[in-house]
Computed example of a mutant assay.
Amino acid sequence: MYNNVEAQPAAPKPPSSSQPNPFGNAFYGAGSGLIRGGLGAYGEKIFGSSSEYVQSNISRYFSDPQYYFQVNDQYVRNKLKVVLFPFLHRGHWTRITDPIGGRLSYKPPIYDINAPDLYIPFMAFGTYVVLAGFSLGLQGKFTPEALSWLFIKGLLGWFMQVMLLKVTLLSLGSGEAPLLDIVAYAGYAFTGLCLAAIGRITLKYSYYFLMPWMALCMGIFLVKTMKRVLFAEVRSYDSSRHHYLLLFIALAQFPLFTWLGNVSVNWLI
């Protein structure tokens, strides 16, 4: 009824070939934790610093495009007075700073008359193209192709003005001005060109007085503006070289205004 077969004794286990290391688990845990923590902190430091570097350089060279369109009617009127009649501006030419988030930034144009904006340059550029086309119509030479060439001519003149200001700042060791600031300063030239174009349409001979006058006013405005930028960012510079370059900026406005103000079918002249 019962199985009387005796149980066989279990076979002995072979001895382990390796001796246990009482420090292995401790070293492994500490080592893996050190590797994970070290690499994590190092990677966070690298990527964190690189992202901050990219953000700081983007804000330095390009800024926020929305900043340049924070304008109102009062700002536009006062800014046009400063651009068209800079010698009547009795206030300072420096921008108003505003610390935000631990960083020093500038107040938008709606709060600072010296801040650059893109609203006036874009509106002035569009008005310049329209007035140029109207002038061609009065001459009996208006065609869609001629208007498109005038548009390209205006863009090329704007680009040349930007390059002039940018090269001047770079030559003086002050190339850190945001690109959109320079684009805005260069675009203010179309306000004077619009006024000269209106003089050509209404009183033909007044153009020959308004064009050099607007070029002179634009030169004064840019010299005042560039001096503010230079004094704010350049710590050491050659004073004589600095004045010669500013004089070159002012004189360059005369051929530029003459070229852009000459409304004709041939946009090269």
Rank of each mutant, 00 (worst) to 15 (best):
P144D: 01
A146C: 02
L147F: 09
F151A: 08
F151E: 03
I152P: 12
I152C: 03
L155K: 04
L155D: 00
L155A: 04
L156D: 01
W158L: 09
W158A: 05
F159M: 10
F159D: 01
F159K: 06
M160C: 13
M160G: 08
Q161N: 01
Q161W: 07
M163R: 11
M163E: 05
K166S: 05
K166G: 00
V167D: 02
V167N: 02
S171R: 13
G173E: 08
S174I: 15
G175K: 07
P178Q: 04
D181T: 11
I182E: 00
I182A: 00
A184D: 02
Y185W: 13
Y185L: 12
G187H: 03
Y188L: 08
F190N: 07
F190I: 15
L195A: 01
A196W: 13
L203D: 07
K204T: 15
K204S: 04
S206R: 09
S206M: 13
L210K: 05
L210P: 15
L210A: 03
L210I: 15
P212F: 08
A215Q: 09
L216C: 07
C217L: 06
I220K: 06
F221R: 03
L222C: 00
L222H: 00
K224I: 10
M226H: 11
R228I: 12
V229F: 10
V229C: 01
L230Y: 11
F231I: 14
E233K: 13
E233N: 10
R235V: 14
R235Q: 09
S236Y: 11
Y237H: 10
Y237M: 11
D238L: 06
S239V: 15
R241L: 13
